[in-house]
Amino acid sequence: MRLSPDSLIYLQWGFVKLNATIVFTWALMLVLAVSAKLITRRLSTSHERSGWQNLLEIVVTAIQKQIEEIGLSRPERYLSFLGTLFLFVATASVFTIVPGYEAPTSSLSTTTALALCVLVAAPVFGITQQGLGGYLKTYVEPTFVMLPFNIISEVSRTLALAVRLFGNMMSGAMIVAILLTIMPFVLPAVMTVLGLLTGMVQAYIFSILAAVYIAAATRARKPKPEPKADTTPAHAT
């Protein structure tokens, strides 16, 4: 029994190895890119369009709307990053219904990688939005005393992001595996369905949190009725 698809190694040259995580990630990337390419190959700009195009338009506009609701004023700027996060995590969990498939997101390495990406992306967006000084100033707000806590918060939330996704995805697969040994009929299927649900929820949570962190870093929130409202994001559970 494996805790992570990382341990399933197909090829290895010293430090460099080709494990199941990387292979399934490539597979997902291939599926996403090829299907996107196929669907967007003949896009219609008229009122009549294909069902697939409609689906993609719904997905893209829904993500855009969510980003806007978080408080990011120009969602198309963050759409590529946040949208891909959501789509990758969601697709990774959806494909769990395929036998023999192991979600890359059930590997702590993958979730860490994604969390690190968020950790890097937030300051990058923040600096491009309000400059280096402006961004760094957010660490000493409201007082200089808060600097260490802000840094700890930055690190800990990245850790939490990585571990939350990993835990949920891994546990889902683990529960199904354990249940298979106890009761091989019906119940694993139900648990798989539940796993799909939790996978979608986790994809949503992961990308929403990433959006919130970026919003906090850019401070590019829309003007609210109360100008002195606390812009510090609430820490995720």
Binding site: N19, L32, A33, V60, T84, A113, C117
Partner: peptide, 27 residues
């Protein structure tokens, strides 16, 4: 150790590539 740092690095690259691909072909 649950974290394999090579895999982490590879996944970061993979994700960056995926972001580029999705941007190019989808959004």
């Amino acid at each position: 150790m649950l974290i394999d740092w090579f895999t982490v690095g590879a996944q970061v690259l993979n994700f960056a590539l995926l972001v580029f691909l999705m941007r190019r072909f989808l959004y």
